[in-house]
Amino acid sequence: MSGNDADPAALRRKRRSWSLDEKRRIVDESLEDGASIAEVARRHDLNANQLFTWRRQFGVELAAPQELAPILPVTITPDATAEYSAPGSIGQMEIVLAEGDRIIVWADVETAALSRVVKALRR
């Protein structure tokens, strides 16, 4: 009998059995801050889809990638006065919140920084 004549069933990968405690531990690991589903799955030699299935089975709500802010009315006005211009910046935007707070940003503003400011003002 040559190596090519091996039983096909013997060549199939053995199916791994996970205890409920092991599943819970891996799901908990996937819920830690900054955890990547793909990395946790790889670390445990597990398919990421299987980890998502376990998370659903344990009642873990799958969060949206990021919370969307409500849509607010916008008014476009002519250029603001030069007193707010930053040297070398091109284009600016003034955001006036319902409470009267104003935010003036330039084209090179970092999205994450602006989001933090808006969230802080909404509190």
Results as ranks from 00 to 15, higher is better:
50 Q>S: 05
79 D>V: 14
70 P>K: 11
45 D>E: 15
67 E>W: 05
39 E>V: 12
83 E>L: 02
86 A>G: 13
56 R>T: 11
80 A>K: 11
73 P>H: 06
81 T>Q: 14
84 Y>P: 02
51 L>R: 05
51 L>E: 00
60 V>F: 03
69 A>C: 04
91 G>N: 08
38 A>Y: 07
69 A>K: 10
90 I>F: 08
90 I>H: 07
75 T>G: 04
51 L>V: 02
60 V>P: 00
70 P>G: 04
38 A>T: 14
67 E>H: 02
47 N>I: 07
57 Q>I: 09
76 I>T: 11
65 P>S: 04
72 L>D: 09
77 T>S: 03
59 G>P: 13
62 L>I: 14
89 S>A: 15
57 Q>F: 05
56 R>S: 15
52 F>C: 14
62 L>C: 08
93 M>R: 12
92 Q>G: 15
70 P>T: 09
50 Q>G: 01
78 P>V: 14
39 E>T: 08
91 G>A: 09
45 D>L: 12
50 Q>I: 01
87 P>V: 11
76 I>A: 10
45 D>K: 10
71 I>C: 04
90 I>R: 08
44 H>D: 01
80 A>L: 15
47 N>E: 15
91 G>M: 08
38 A>I: 10
42 R>S: 06
65 P>E: 11
75 T>M: 05
42 R>C: 02
67 E>Q: 07
64 A>D: 11
64 A>Q: 14
80 A>M: 13
49 N>R: 07
38 A>R: 12
92 Q>C: 14
43 R>W: 04
62 L>F: 10
49 N>E: 12
71 I>Q: 07
71 I>Y: 05
62 L>Y: 09
73 P>M: 05
90 I>Q: 06
90 I>D: 06
78 P>W: 12
92 Q>L: 15
55 R>P: 00
42 R>N: 03
58 F>Q: 12
50 Q>R: 01
41 A>Q: 03
67 E>P: 00
41 A>E: 01
71 I>W: 07
80 A>V: 12
